[in-house]
Amino acid sequence: MSPPHVTSLPRPPTAGEKAVDVTFRHGTFAVGLGVLGLLALIVVEIGGVAAPALREQGLQFLHGETWDANQQVYGIRPQIWGTLYSSTIALVVGGVLGIAVALFISQGFLPRKLELLLKTVIELLAAIPSVVYGLWGIFFVLPALRPVTEAIHDAFGDFALFSPRSAGPNLLGGSLVLAIMILPTVTAVSRDAFAAVPGKVREAAFGLGATRWECIFGVVLPTASSGVFGALVLAFGRALGETMALAMLLGNRNEFSWSLFAPSNTLASLIANTFPEATGTERNALMCAAIVLLLITLAVNVLGTLILARTNRRLRGLA
């Protein structure tokens, strides 16, 4: 009996397979490059629309204080100020609270399961759309804040910081909502930085007889410091670009003011509030404002990303 005939299967890849392989690999390369191209395209496209207005307004655009479509005069200094002012307040409030929460849910104050649950809840809160926070701000924060701001104004009204007796939208209300919006970002990123401090390193501190807070201040915070800093920078970037909540809460007034209780405006909310009704030169001017916003946030984000990348490299040596 002869053994059953079995064909030998191996064959070199067909020309078709090779062609598919080469095409696919170059295809992924092209798409990958497209991600970078997109970034460039965004700058070029917006820049293209903005260019005429920028030429017309010149440097006056950056330091002018008037935004008047009828006279075709556009200056965005009050909005740049409002953007930085509201974001800074939000960063201070949201940063302190966010780091406190991150410590509270990562340093063994709570049972492990509860820590993980709270971490998930906070990540979910980060996903609530900003327009919803805006709605909540209008119907809860502004009314709740009003007696407080009025009392402060009556007591310390002489200070420029508290000068107009606020009635309605104001910088403080918007900034506080902004603080709550960036809080989950601060918490999530800095919690990750704290959690990345290896257990054996914390153990070493406890083994030397450190209390929990001596361990936190002596080891955890210094080790995770650049991660926390990166979290704050990223949150600041988010606050600078935040649009809807501030468009709904700040009052959309294009005037420079130190006051916490006065209506204000930011670059993003200026664009959001003005754009739908704008035509002609005003639209182009809004594009210029967008370019300025893009440059500011790009700078902050690049900084934050670099810091976080450095943290990861540094911590890798610990593991």
Partner: peptide
């Protein structure tokens, strides 16, 4: 400890 664990 088992693993060397110097602080950063």
């Amino acid at each position: 400890f088992q693993q060397p664990n110097p602080f950063a």
